[in-house]
Design a binder for these strands. Structure first.
Lengths: 203, 203, 203, 203
DNA sequence: GATGAATGAGAATTCATTCAT
DNA sequence: AATGAATGAATTCTCATTCAT
């Protein structure tokens, strides 16, 4: 009872710090955000920060793991609503939702791109693979073979890095141009893995 | 001319600084290399640094542009020796050489991955596209369509990011596993862009 | 009585804290032991510390007084077993036992040397003089004259400081070399106090 | 020429810092003197401190080595003026001068006592022994045997620790009482080492 | 009495940048 | 052009102490 109240408070303070840090990371970049900035924004004392995090990297890692997970979960849920007919189609829907989300939150994309690896998410979520989380959430089984797990990883990396260069840098073209290009590329990548019929279905 | 001698000297000191900085960036990371470290290693005074570079980011950018270019040039030359039969095959050869070079120089890969974008190289080299430089060096024309320029860009991003996660982080598998996987994926990506014959030729 | 039970409990928690602190002081030095370290080791809350001690110096002083007293008591008891024939011989035996104990517990020596003075012990024990405690415990009377009280004090200081430099620093030689040297020096110091003639001669 | 001017300036700045630090160490103790205090008093920027010293301990060590040496040199010179007839008498004169100097500068005594060992001075001065420095300065040879070197060391420790407890703490009596007591004790210590004649000479 | 989350002053240290020589 | 001593703002991190529960 009592302890749960205290625990509640503690969780809140941690969230408070993470929220403040996220906002600053997005607005001025994680590099140029000092712990001083974070505690000032969170309205707590400097020492309090160190009660919850060992150093700036720790809060950064936690935020990225948290946000990435939320991102994938949201994308997977949205994808699911579209009732994909196959594993490939599911992944494709997830990719599309991710691109849209990155477009809406370019700051988050910038934060994630430079500081995360999809492997983090796996470890965090105890999943075999980042795309796997999406697929699991889609109610589908995890990728059936190491081969397709690798393909999912490659797809996720491709989406992230092209989204980054396209949305943030406008290279080699804007996201409006790159999105269909990316989707068709991924379709092609996944195609040969599936029997011709399924391939047709996706297209 | 006297002025050319002076220019020569200036260029030498600049190179000296860049060489020292590169070595340090590779061994201890660009983040934790101070200007003090650089000038000490180069054996020049602190003030001298500011005669040639505005700040640490400038020397970092210059080094990355320089090394990336060298990387692509070397890969393109090696690829050329293998006498590719088509544009696609040429790009594929370049990719293979790049992966090998990244494997030999993981430090350089780490430096480049976090701090460059292939767009930098384009601007620097006044080329439309990173792969374009490779292709130009191969004596082929620049990518014939915007479509294929985009594809080249996508391929380069894919190679860099998967090389990074594979070689540096071992995710989702070692480079020995990922290299063939990556090459076949890229082959598939490029395939549909070419007429069936060319496709055959590459395989 | 209830109050005595409470007192008992209080004393227990205090001892618990002192034991934890002693262990830490010996292993990492008093300077680098924080109150946090102490309470963590003792398994009590931070606030509890302040219920029993005003600050870190207070617990340090108490520990040193406590340990020094124990040291002298033990040395005196051991010395007593050897049935010294005179006050001088008694002191000499105490000295020898002290050196042996310091050799066995160099950590304690380090703690004591930098932070105590034999006067502390006197005040604590309400004795006129540190050696006095030894002598009293030996069942002998307190030093008979201020003169011999001073001599006892000088002897104790000499033993402590030479034990410290010899055992901890190895200067000017190891304790195996310095112990006999020290004992013979002290014998010489005490000698002349006894036979009237010699005493006169010196004065 | 030019470089010597710069060197001169550098030495001056270092001395400036050491002088400021010494004054603060004497007035508020080395423990509670921050680097901030030192640079403020010296009137230089904080970074300047780190140009000359690695940390607070380094400046403390340098100051103590410097002051101890000055102390011994001064004592030895004064002792020399009194034209000692023997090695023992020379050491005795040095001791007396040291006691007087400690009496005049109790702050310095406090600083030295807690933080130095006579061995430091030896190493610093490349002398075999602290007392040796005194004797060397007296124009006498270094202690002739390891035995007498040890005795000199013991004497120096004894003087320092008794001066400390007497002058700073008033234990077991004031320095006016302890000085003659200490001198006669030391005389007794040294006595038996010398042939009767020399003994006479000292008296 | 006991707890431990919260505090915030303060200490050490780094480092890009300037500028007199 | 070249030097390198000096700067001081900025940052990280520690820790004794308080106080509401």
């Amino acid at each position: 009872m009592i302890s749960s109240l205290v625990d509640e408070k503690k969780r809140k303070k941690k969230s408070l710090l993470m929220a403040a840090a996220l906002e600053l990371f997005l607005s001025k970049g994680s590099e140029s955000t000092s712990i001083d900035d974070i505690v000032r924004k969170a309205g707590v004392a400097k020492g309090t920060f160190y009660l919850y995090f060992h150093d700036r990297n720790e809060i950064l890692r936690e935020i990225i793991a948290d946000r990435s997970k939320a991102l994938v979960v949201a994308a997977a849920l949205s994808a699911n609503l579209r009732q994909p007919a196959s594993e490939s189609e599911g992944l494709l829907f997830v990719v599309e939702e991710l691109i849209d989300e990155f477009t809406r939150q370019p700051g988050l994309l910038g934060l994630i791109y430079r500081n995360m690896t999809w492997g983090m998410l796996d470890r965090e979520a105890r999943m075999e693979n980042p795309a796997a989380s999406a697929l699991q959430l889609l109610g589908k089984a995890s990728p059936t073979s190491p081969e397709s797990a690798r393909m999912a990883y490659v797809v996720m990396e491709l989406v992230t890095s092209i989204s980054y260069s396209s949305i943030i840098l406008g290279e080699p073209a804007g996201i409006d141009v790159m999105k269909p290009f990316l989707l068709s590329s991924i379709r092609r990548l996944l195609a040969s893995e599936e029997p011709p019929k399924a391939l047709e279905a996706i297209r």
